[in-house]
Design a protein around this nucleic acid. Structure first.
Lengths: 238, 238
DNA sequence: CAAAAGCAAGAGCACTGCTCTCGTTATTGT
DNA sequence: ACAATAACGAGAGCAGTGCTCTTGCTTTTG
């Protein structure tokens, strides 16, 4: 299965990892647009053509970095949820768990701006997300779904009202994502999910420059309201 | 002032416009990353070095396109507001004016995805927005501010509650943007503004692929709730 | 009418992604 | 154990990029 069969296979794994590490370093330093295959190879002491034995093209390297970034932010979100769940002495209200997860995602984004831009900014390569990315891409979303499910089971949800025309869409999405949850809440969750990343993107991409100073409190405020719009209950004043 | 003084000056203006037009064409076709100075020059029948008489670098060309894009979407927003204002037989409720403006911005984004990505996606060039862009960049925001001001004067605002810690920030931003409006509403407006573009970006950048089908209704729903979060009043059911 | 400034063209530099070939080395099947 | 096969690293090379510099020419200016 995952047993390493020989020196060749072992070396391949190590070289692949080294390439990705160096590429990630250049990504963090210069951004995706300035990431250069040749520079990566140069830094690793290989010749550029050798690198093509590991990644068939620059876009494939970028795709690998995209997958890793999705996994990294997904892991951060999962960790934040676990931490918020085990808060002592009392378990945190669900709105605050939501805010904690959202804040963790924002923190990761601020710490890794170029990786964030890679996955939540404009699509860089040939404008089609490969299938490899859809799994890791949904990890953060799943965290929010699980969180809402917990809230639903513990306290119930203040299910938002829904226009009749959106009813079928809400049911379709609910069947896909979380058949055990109320469709209006799932639809609100999808919208809240997008809006959450809107806040992060605006902050990160400079739209708040010379305008908003207290960014973290504003983010927490908005995230809390989004949680309530999904139906979560928490402390009244945010 | 703006009188054209000679053939040389006239030619410069025309050539500059031609370069921007061709660049915009390539931008729409291939995206900002693949926009090539040499290709633009080639298509215009000039040699690449001649193009540097008009734009000192590729980034400056991109900056010019950014400014134009901000102006274009700003104009669309202003037009949508004017149209919604003059609706007959009855003037539209303010929530619906907000939704109309937001929908117009979304429509422009869907029609010009690469230009939208240029201004609201990840920052492409050396990661610092030049001063030339801040004016045009605020046009859309100003439309929303004006719209909220109209609503405030006509019907008043259902001013959202605000945590005390955010009070100073809200007052600072209000002094900058719209001193005549209630600070909590201005702060909510800033947050709503970011969230609105989060919805558009997620749709445009493929995050809704294989998930959301009825995107326009969902957008209108979320936009309406954002309007209400700022304090606007409208028809109850959205 | 001469000096100055603006302009297009071309050559050239350093860089990019990517392909192809050519020895070398490790893995595999007999 | 040995030969066939596949993977590998190195190098040369192609077409393309942004950008600079020099060289003549033309328009504008004093």
């Amino acid at each position: 299965m995952s047993t390493i069969r020989g020196a060749r296979e072992r070396a391949r794994i190590e070289v692949t990892a080294a390439i990705k590490d160096e590429a990630r370093k250049q990504l963090a330093a210069e951004g995706a647009a300035r990431l250069s295959l040749r520079a990566v190879a140069r830094e690793l002491g290989m010749v550029s053509s050798a690198l093509y034995r590991y990644f068939p093209s620059r876009d494939d390297l970028l795709t690998a970095l995209i997958v890793d970034a999705y996994d990294a932010v997904g892991e951060v979100a999962e960790g934040a949820r676990a931490t918020a769940e085990q808060a002592r002495p009392h378990p945190a209200p669900h709105v605050e768990r939501w805010v904690a997860v959202a804040g963790a995602v924002r923190g990761w984004a601020l710490a890794h701006p170029h990786e964030y831009a890679l996955i939540y900014g404009s699509p860089v390569p040939g404008y089609s997300a490969p299938m490899d990315t859809v799994g890791p891409a949904s990890r953060v979303g799943l965290v929010f779904i699980d969180l809402v499910r917990d809230a639903f089971r513990a306290d119930g949800l203040a299910v938002p009202r829904l226009a009749p025309e959106l009813r079928p869409e809400a049911e379709r999405i609910t069947a896909d994502l979380a058949p055990d949850l109320p469709p209006p809440a799932v639809l609100a969750l999808v919208a809240a999910w997008a809006q959450l990343f809107g806040l992060i993107s605006f902050e990160l991409f400079g739209q708040f420059n010379r305008l908003v100073e207290a960014r973290e409190p504003l983010f927490r405020l908005a995230a809390g309201e989004l949680a309530r719009s999904v139906g979560l209950r928490g402390t009244p004043a945010g």
